[in-house]
């Protein structure tokens, strides 16, 4: 995007205006995400920069909201912080409970979505796949249909079949409805990322493996799996993030004790917003940065593996 040497003065002015404009748009994209980080260290219960903060006065900053995250909901938050305090936090602190639920739901829905999605993507990428287009349209649709419609449908469906009372040998499976719903929402992401890695997949590799005496199972684990693994992991991460961030379905079909991080945030924002929300937001921003970095690394690795140079 260098300026050509033959550019007229007017074009030069336009060029720099254009770059400024782009800088402002990038600022618009990133500023709202970064702004929560300093504000989460506010020592006052405000959502704006105090005078002390602007003057970089250490008294303007504190970690009290992070502390509140830990202690909120505990039985005895004010006793000395020994092992029983931590046990209390682990058992009772509302945000820790929500994190546990979010992780359990996220992990199981991701496993379900990734296994089913990867197998289906392998089928979809075969040249002999019949009805490819309509099937693909159906499998991607959970991403397109508004979440409120999905949640409404699931609410009717689950209450009719009474899923909350389902049990295996008397053990009521916790979060079953939410896990199934989140797996459904994550599947399109797995399908998209895995089929993307299978584009241009060299089918002579599997034939070569078979020719050399490998049975289909060996071929899958030794040849296909290593090649599509980056796409599978990316898809799994997308599916996990989808579940980790999903609130509407949990609100509609989740039981009262199925409190997740987004649901807790949602309640916090709706009822009385405290800067503790900002400290949660900061932690989530850090997690998403890490995930983004992982996915980018995987994407480059996958391109290298498949011998595709980015153009």
């Amino acid at each position: 995007m260098a300026l050509q040497s033959y550019a007229s003065p007017l074009e030069k002015i336009w060029h720099y205006t254009y770059l400024t404009l782009c800088a402002l748009i990038f600022l618009f994209l990133i500023a709202p995400i970064l702004i929560v980080i300093p504000l989460s260290f506010n020592s006052q219960p405000y959502f704006t920069f105090t005078k002390e903060m602007l003057a970089l006065d250490p008294t303007g900053y504190s970690t009290r909201w992070y502390d509140l995250l830990l202690t909120f909901g505990m039985n005895a938050p004010d006793v000395p912080r020994d092992s029983s305090w931590w046990a209390d936090a682990w058992e009772n602190a509302a945000w820790i409970k929500a994190t546990k639920n979010s992780v359990i739901i996220g992990v199981f829905s991701t496993i379900l979505a990734t296994v089913l999605g990867t197998v289906a993507a392998l089928g979809l990428s075969k040249p002999d796949m019949p009805y490819r287009r309509p099937i693909m349209a159906i499998l991607i649709s959970p991403m397109i249909v508004p979440i409120i419609i999905t949640a409404t449908g699931l609410f009717f469906f689950y209450s009719d079949i009474g899923i909350s009372k389902w049990s295996i040998f008397g053990w009521e499976i916790p979060y079953l409805g939410v896990i199934l719903a989140h797996a459904t929402l994550g599947i399109p992401f797995v399908i998209i990322t895995v089929t993307a890695t299978l584009v241009g997949f060299d089918h002579s590799l599997t034939r070569a493996a078979a020719n050399l005496g490998a049975n289909p199972r060996t071929t899958f684990f030794k040849i296909i799996m290593p090649l599509i693994l980056p796409g599978v992991i990316s898809g799994a991460l997308f599916a996990f993030v989808t579940s980790f961030d999903e609130v509407v379905v949990v609100l509609f079909i989740g039981g009262l004790d199925e409190q997740t991080i987004p649901r807790q945030m949602w309640n916090g924002i709706r009822e009385q917003i405290s800067p503790a929300i900002l400290s949660v937001a900061t932690i989530l921003v850090i997690i998403s940065t890490l995930l983004l970095a992982t996915v980018e690394l995987l994407r480059r690795r996958s391109e290298k593996l498949r011998g595709i140079t980015p153009h």
Partner: peptide
């Protein structure tokens, strides 16, 4: 190929299409 896609198709049918139909 169809057999590979079938499990997911059934899953989506039960957890998504049926609820929408309902």
């Amino acid at each position: 190929a169809l057999l590979l896609v079938l499990p997911l198709l059934l899953f989506i049918l039960v957890t998504f299409i049926l609820p929408i139909g309902q």
